[in-house]
Design a protein around this nucleic acid. Structure first.
Lengths: 204, 204
DNA sequence: TTGTGGTTGTGCTCACAATCACAAGCAAAC
DNA sequence: GTTTGCTTGTGATTGTGAGCACAACCACAA
């Protein structure tokens, strides 16, 4: 399995595996077979084995995968072994909901700063962060933060993205319903809730 | 192109086309070529043509696609030509953010009811809806609502899903980080924000 | 030391989606 | 009426990922 390009679809499944292994660890289970794991995640056992084997041989034949060390391996592959700092732009309802989302901590994410353009919000505290003026985004350069979560209206998204990229941001989770024009080196993932909901009626 | 199964990936792109055509309509543009549309959406022209042609011939050779009527066609394909009523379960921060999300109206969605299990929230008003007790989900049967948005903690998600399905819900947009066990006839779409964010560090 | 049950790792095959290339066809100009 | 330019619709090709079957292998027991 050496010298193989790793499929994007495999990468997409890795956080799912990480979460499963993390939960198993808290339950003090020491090993798990691809069969058992597949039942939990509703996948096929060979797919799980193939996914994991792209990164090397983690398991033991006849036994399964060691929970604790495999979790650490995946964490390291996804670069989640060090705490990842992220900034949030947009302190509206969606932004504040995101900021207080408990699920991030499992992956080691930490909201390190929050920005907004509304004077009524600037200066207020959300969680442990003070809401700063979007004009201050430029100060991120010095702080070496590489991830941003964008929760602003669609018409403001591109402008914020430009400022973030200029300030050294390398990855953006975009929650606005729009395409962001960014340089190739910047990775954008867009989640468009309305669009996802839009396909449901077709299937029912 | 008759008698072809329509790819899931095509369906996923249809709401994107619908939004684009809707915006073009407000800008009073009468026709658009696959080339122009591809530039807007950052897709390839042949892909757009093939996607649309699965549902019949909408365009005019030499001219392009008529904005207004194509929008209506797509709306009808996705069953968004009639207002789709949906219920929201979970009136926490994420739930309230979703309830007031402006993007739903473009697709004709309407939040028709909101449920929560927290006595502090039950009875309060969010937007035009009164927050009801989750125990009342059973009353949905009489209201003929088929869509639900699930914004509750992971450990409560399966229980709520069971109640919703029992009350006649056919499609669920699940925002909890967990797999939902549902009958085959029910369509579930899960959005896991933390998991999406989890793949970003790998790419940067 | 050898045998056995069980599980991983992976080459191969199949299915599906993206892309290409071109024929078909419409509109407008002359 | 005919020609020209442009754009669609689609069969054929290529690329990518999922699934399967089996060889390789480990741990443990006898």
């Amino acid at each position: 399995m050496k010298y193989h390009k790793i499929p994007d679809e495999t990468i997409k499944r890795m956080p799912m595996y990480l979460r499963a292994f993390s939960i198993l660890k808290t339950q003090n289970q020491e090993t798990i077979s691809s069969q058992q794991l597949a039942e939990r995640l509703h996948l096929n056992p060979p797919q799980i084995r193939k996914d994991l084997s792209y990164f090397g041989a983690f398991g033991t034949r006849g036994i399964g995968y060691p929970v604790s060390s495999t979790a650490e391996q995946i964490r390291s592959i996804l670069k989640l072994d060090v705490s990842q700092q992220a900034v949030l732009v947009g302190a509206g309802r969606l932004g504040t909901a995101i900021a207080s989302y408990p699920g991030f901590s499992m992956f080691g994410f930490d909201i390190a700063a929050i920005f907004d353009n509304d004077n009524n919000k600037i200066g207020k505290t959300i969680g442990k962060n003070l809401v700063e003026n979007v004009a201050e985004i430029v100060t991120l350069k010095a702080r070496n933060i590489r991830l941003a979560i964008l929760a602003v209206p669609a018409n403001a998204a591109q402008g914020c993205a430009d400022a973030l990229i200029d300030a050294g941001i390398k990855g953006i989770l975009n929650l606005s319903p729009c395409y962001l024009n960014v340089p190739k080196r910047v990775k954008v993932i867009t989640i468009d809730i309305a669009m996802e909901l839009g396909i449901l009626p077709y299937y029912i």
